[in-house]
Design a protein around this nucleic acid. Structure first.
Lengths: 352, 352
DNA sequence: TTGTATGCGTTATCAC
DNA sequence: GTGATAACGCATACAA
């Protein structure tokens, strides 16, 4: 082994061709005679050259082939949410033809020297659920001309958004319950803001909440203006159980209808209801949100709003691709589909 | 806006300092007079310069600050497994001080031009559950001097491995059951290989299996040499339910002890048992593997083997860090801890 | 503490 | 089809 790693220039010299020719052998950007190609490849093998250095290539090309994904929460937590996972799937798929991989970034770097939107070699970035915290690096990224897309959040003017008709969709679920004769309902929501501790939400909390939480709550209140809102700490079955236990604690005021802001929460509420000796949907109706497959919930099929999670990711990928090619792209508003399952039914005759 | 983005050279000129000085202002690698710093920063602001270009910096430094994570399976699926999620957590934490982000890579590029170990600007890579498929790019990565670590898999000589004492650990669970008087047991395993369809495993399947599947099965058979093995398609509660339904189908030969290779599968088996009218642990004992919190399984606490999932990720991160600093690192063998819950009990008197 | 001079390894451009 | 050349934008060794 030589003292220094072989470069494409070494290979070209060894093969007796110009560097540009050797480069083309690897990039395929132009036609090369078979004999020439063979000579180059042989020389490379002799020198132990394994292809162009991605770092140098990306400097020269002005592209790294990397799309940053910025999460507004702990990575481990984000991946526990099937909706996010599905989105990542769609996103990965959409940016693949672009030759891009996904770089995981947080909006609040743990370590001082952790990579950020501005220090990582990303061609574009997708912001998920991100908070106001990163407005600074956002501005820098935009000044630098890095295409940005935000999924369910607000990154300010000029950043395309992928959104959901949360309010309207949630209103459908509420209307469905109303149509079944439920005169009141309780809603179990996603956290209103970072660091929230499980509990009942005040009106102040409600107005300051994350977009998603706030909009879905508004949808409920369009139908049930006085619906109490219990906010969970995160989206999980266990959180749903915890919330459900509170709702079903006093036999006095047990709700007959519970509107959960996620399928996981709904699944937990159902379990808590069973625990309290209530039958679903005979005694209490429960709706979810997301339309994911809840592992282990069978034989229940949730009445829920099916959101196009993978589509959202795919759309984000398509938008950054378009922008990278110099096009401009508007945001997209996705629509949820109401799906009736077997967790909602006509309200019991005598309100409990 | 000028026709061309400002570079650090432009900033230096505008500020009336040398490029190296401007560079130092951003890197902090040397002391700079406050007045000088201020001049540089002002000039930068005037020119709309937002900091060094990461691509150029990484070429010059020879480091990109990116660690590749290569999965042997569909990304969406990988993240559905809490163990993987925890590992990613630990890994992210361990590479953060290194100033590195995680780049998600697949071992079987979907698109022809999807990024790979060899085309992505990674400083190092962690391979998770990867298959033989990528031996080619592995060789290239090693030739190029990219530090590699493999978690629960085999990447050939010279690649440090993070492993688990799967066989010994699983043997403990089996011994525990044997000690409780269970004379036979059935095991529900992880898939023996990619693309496996749910079903009973033959001895041929068993020997050709993934390391993890094979070793845990061996642990069971150390205690119950004739234990039948039913292999799931993936690790999830629903798969566990499906497997459990098969096990508990014929009232004739119902097992009194089921050894599942993951907590999720165990949770499903328990649910299937309840469905079949069996009580856990009175009628049937069930053990899991992983020691994760199974969302929604309460009030059961699984008897299981607790594996240090986050530790494994952290160790992988530490090893690549060490190797990046020129050190050499050996692999690590982690140990699982047996934890008794309330899903195992003395075998019922009359075998069913 | 600041400045000077190089080169990191490629690839785009254009002429041949 | 192939070759010569010039950037890409920066960080570092070393001198001042």
């Amino acid at each position: 082994m030589s003292t220094r790693r072989a470069t494409i220039a070494d290979v070209a010299r060894e093969a007796g061709v110009a560097p540009s020719t050797a480069s083309v052998v690897y990039s395929g950007k132009a036609a090369v005679a078979d004999a020439t190609r063979a000579r180059v490849l042989e020389a490379a093998a002799r020198l132990g050259y394994t292809g162009p250095d991605p770092r140098a290539a990306s400097l020269r090309r002005g592209r790294s082939g990397i799309v940053g994904v910025v999460f507004g929460e702990h990575l481990g937590r984000a991946f526990l949410d099937p909706v996010k996972t599905l989105m990542m799937d769609g996103l990965a798929e959409a940016v693949a033809p672009l030759g891009a991989g996904l770089l995981l970034l947080r909006d609040e770097p743990a370590a001082a020297d952790a990579p950020t939107l501005t220090t990582a070699p990303v061609d574009a970035a997708v912001l998920i659920n991100c908070s106001a915290r990163l407005r600074g690096s956002l501005a820098a990224a935009r000044a630098r001309g890095i295409p940005l897309v935000v999924v369910e959040g607000d990154a300010g003017e000029g950043v395309p958004r992928i959104d959901l008709d949360n309010r309207e969709a949630q209103r459908q679920a509420a209307s469905h319950l109303r149509g079944l004769g439920h005169e009141s309902a309780v809603t179990v929501t996603l956290p209103p803001h970072a660091g929230w501790r499980r509990g009942w939400m005040s009106d102040d909390d409600a107005s300051a909440a994350f977009n998603v939480t706030r909009d879905r709550l508004a949808g409920v209140r369009d139908v049930y203006p006085r619906a109490p809102a219990f906010a969970a700490e995160t989206t999980s079955i266990d959180e749903g159980v915890a919330a459900g236990r509170v709702l079903f604690a006093g036999p006095a005021a047990r709700p007959t209808a519970v509107i959960a802001q996620s399928d996981l929460l709904a699944a937990g509420v159902i379990r808590a209801a069973e625990e309290a000796g209530l039958r679903v949907p005979a005694d209490v109706s429960v709706t979810g949100f997301d339309g994911i497959v809840v592992d282990g919930l069978a034989p229940y099929r949730l009445t829920t709003l099916v959101q196009p999670a993978a589509e959202k990711g795919r759309a984000a990928g398509v938008i950054v691709s378009t922008m990278l090619e110099g096009g401009t792209a508007a945001g997209i508003l996705f629509t949820c589909a109401f799906r009736e399952g077997n967790t909602t039914a006509v309200a019991p005759r005598s309100p409990r």
